[in-house]
Design a protein around this nucleic acid. Structure first.
Lengths: 194, 194
DNA sequence: CGCGACGTTGATTTGCCTCAACGATTGTGG
DNA sequence: CCACAATCGTTGAGGCAAATCAACGTCGCG
């Protein structure tokens, strides 16, 4: 159960077996049914979650009520509203299961205790945030510079497995376009390849 | 010279005087003339810089050669291409002085040594990245959901001092619109307020 | 079976871009 | 210290990518 998570960590730092066991002792397994929410706007994000099975989406709503999807998370990804988690203030985001999920979660206080006992773990999480920052920056630039069709093709190339398990209108939202337009983009691509 | 930087750090962790002195010993002051580059695409980002005086911009170029401004940095901000810095691989970004600047820089190896000697410093930088991540996420959402006029008004409210020292076409790029269009947005706003 | 979720299609609209031209200001080398 | 170029902001005409709105077909599921 902890294997891929441990591999994840030991890529950044070395831990002794007892340190690893201590880390495991802080984690709480959680199951989540399709469409149920791990977090809703207004709540404080009390846990960070590592996905061992299933698929989730993190999104926010604009004033008009439109969803903007900020992240998908599948197996071996972490998901949380770090802003709310770190400051322990109400979130503006939703985290929802798109499939039945199994998670390993760590509560806020446990994570702080982990950092006190094993300061090197700060490094693991720092590098994690840096990677997600880099990914967000790439998306930011692509939205500003690439037309919808190129964004969709790049998405297919980077995450070929996602369209197999994620409804198309969520992918449209992730790519910053309407579901109708993504449908038209796909038709144009299909006609090209005839 | 170190005052605001120290205040910055002690907001996240407590350091002894000797730890602080050690940290200072790792920093190198750098001066930068207007329009000169701290980093150019293709180079490896070897330093992280804390701005004690002046103003810089960080940007990338798309295939068509258009600039996309990712960050402005003024006094008391850090600036670097973290992606390139962390992996020590060639950057795709430019960092350029918009005014004559004074910086406190820390080289890659010195930062690693700092983390080895004072692991708690990982926390300082983790929290820094988290804050910049949150800021980028807000910009991301605003570009996807707000029209140009609202983005500009929100920018003025958040950074009222920036238009006084940053050329307008750079602000347009930061807000994800053309300089021509920002000019038209401003005219419409001026006419409203008559 | 009936309903909701999902994807598609077409008609219309629009926010923003592109391109081109033009003043105003700055700064810099002769 | 002036002249000229570069930088910067503005304006207008025209075009386009993508949004909006509305209707419809198809699944899968309770």
């Amino acid at each position: 159960m902890f294997d891929t998570l441990d591999a994840h960590i030991t890529r950044s730092i070395q831990l002794t077996d007892s340190e690893l066991a201590y880390f495991h002792s802080l984690l709480r397994p959680v199951s989540l049914k399709t469409k149920s929410f791990l977090l809703q706007a207004g709540e404080i994000c009390t846990i960070e979650s590592f996905v061992t099975k299933g698929c989730l989406r993190k999104y926010c709503l604009d004033e008009a009520g439109h969803e903007v999807i900020l992240q998908f998370a599948i197996e071996d990804w972490w998901i949380a509203d770090l802003q709310s988690f770190t400051t322990q203030t109400p979130s503006k985001l939703f985290i929802q299961a798109l499939e039945d999920c199994s998670l390993l979660t760590i509560p806020y206080e446990a994570k702080e205790e982990l950092f006190r006992k094993i300061p090197a773990m700060e490094r693991v999480f720092r590098l994690m945030v840096q990677r997600s920052q880099a990914a967000l920056q790439d998306r930011f630039v692509s939205i500003l510079t690439q037309p919808a069709e190129e964004r969709y093709l790049a998405f297919l190339k980077k995450y070929p497995q996602f369209p197999l398990r994620i409804p198309q209108h969520y992918i449209a939202s992730y790519l910053g376009m309407t579901p109708e337009f993504l449908s038209k983009v796909r038709r144009r691509l299909a006609e090209k390849n005839k």
